[in-house]
């Protein structure tokens, strides 16, 4: 069953007309030059430092007191970073990253759906504000809040003991579970907000049309709403996964020794071990892993959507 629905799309681009090219030259300053300060600033303080890290990663640590040396170049630091000592942390980080992103999606999906399509319109602004507040609260401070909640003598522990669910103090702080709770909490708003925007854009007439055409609510959800919200779902997963993988604070505050993540590993190479070469290699690997996972996920989404392409086709025309 191929349903082709065409509707005009009331997006902001509608008013854009191609500017008259011939006149542009004379009436303004050479505008590309306006970006020059930002170019220079980002080249000096972003490209150069990150390039330097890339350069360090091919070097080695010369002795106890040196931090890096580059007279012999090799990939040895990458091999060292992936040696069994550190590989566990890489594995752990990837696990937390993928599990955290999926849990965020599972928690955020119904909430965003409810906020955008079910909650009273008059209260929507308030609901969004309520999601914004924790998102903009200081990252470190809200993570400390979880340390207080999850501590063995903390609130949750007392609550669970009071309810008779357990007799012993909660031993969850400084484990991988605590880190997982922390990252899900910290990045949840980044999943809710793009999902909200996506659901908000699914025009009600489309959903009604689906109903009028005899689809039940489940089919409307799976065949109209979710396919149309797919870009938002992808954006949400990226917004959560990318910063989550590089997380340093959550693992430091809640993880302790057992909930280690790559971010801490990189930091410790620069701060305590003073092995800048190895730390740089780890930082480069971290970025590569993020890029690779995103690429693999994109491929999976693309492959998975192929077999259904012929029946889930929903064309939203740019103009009718």
């Amino acid at each position: 069953m191929t349903s082709q629905i065409t509707t005009p799309r009331p997006r902001q681009d509608a008013s854009r007309t191609p500017p008259s090219r011939k006149r542009q030259g004379k009436w303004w300053l050479p505008k590309p030059l306006l970006a020059l300060p930002a170019w220079a600033w980002l080249l000096i303080f972003f490209v150069a430092p990150v390039g330097q890290v890339l350069w360090f990663s091919f070097g080695y640590k010369p002795g106890i007191f040196g931090t890096h040396a580059n007279d012999v170049l090799s990939f040895d630091r990458y091999a060292e970073a992936l040696s069994p000592t550190f590989f566990l942390t890489f594995q752990n980080t990837l696990w937390v990253g993928i599990a955290g992103t999926l849990i965020c999606l599972i928690i955020a999906f119904p909430v965003a759906y409810w906020m955008a399509l079910k909650a009273p319109l008059s209260r929507r602004g308030l609901l969004i504000a309520l999601v914004m507040v924790p998102y903009w609260a200081n990252f470190l401070v809200r993570t400390i809040g979880w340390q207080v909640i999850l501590a063995p003598e903390g609130w949750l522990s007392h609550l669970l003991q009071g309810l008779g669910l357990t007799n012993e103090p909660l031993e969850i702080l400084y484990t991988r579970t605590a880190v997982l709770i922390g990252v899900v909490y910290n990045y949840l708003p980044l999943m809710i907000l793009p999902l909200f925007v996506a659901f908000d854009r699914v025009e009600l007439p489309l959903r009604e049309a689906s109903k009028d055409l005899g689809a039940n609510r489940w089919s409307t959800l799976t065949q109209v709403t979710i396919p149309l919200a797919k870009p938002g779902i992808i954006v949400g997963c990226l917004l959560v996964f990318i910063p989550l993988m590089g997380d340093y604070i959550t693992a430091t505050v809640l993880g302790g020794a057992r909930g280690n993540m790559i971010g801490q590993l990189v930091a410790s190479q620069f701060q305590t071990a003073q092995n800048w070469a190895l730390g740089s290699a780890m930082a480069v690997l971290l970025m590569l892993i993020i890029l690779l996972t995103v690429a693999v996920a994109a491929l999976i989404v693309w492959v998975a959507s192929r077999p259904f392409a012929w029946r889930r086709r929903l064309v939203i025309g740019e103009d009718s």
Binding site: W28, P30, K31, P32, L34, A35, A38, W39, L42, F45, F46, V47, P49, V50, Q52, V53, F56, T67, H68, I242, P243, M245, G246, D247, Y248, G263, V266, A267, F270, W276, G279, S280, A283, L286, M287, I290
Partner: peptide, 30 residues
């Protein structure tokens, strides 16, 4: 004033946005 430089600049901005803070931190320190 979009031009040939625009895609490169956009890529740079995206890189700045997606680079984990910890990488920025260890890169800026040295």
């Amino acid at each position: 004033r979009a031009g040939k430089w625009t895609p490169w600049f956009s890529i740079l901005l995206i890189l700045v946005t997606v680079t984990p803070e910890i990488v920025d931190a260890v890169a800026l320190l040295p």
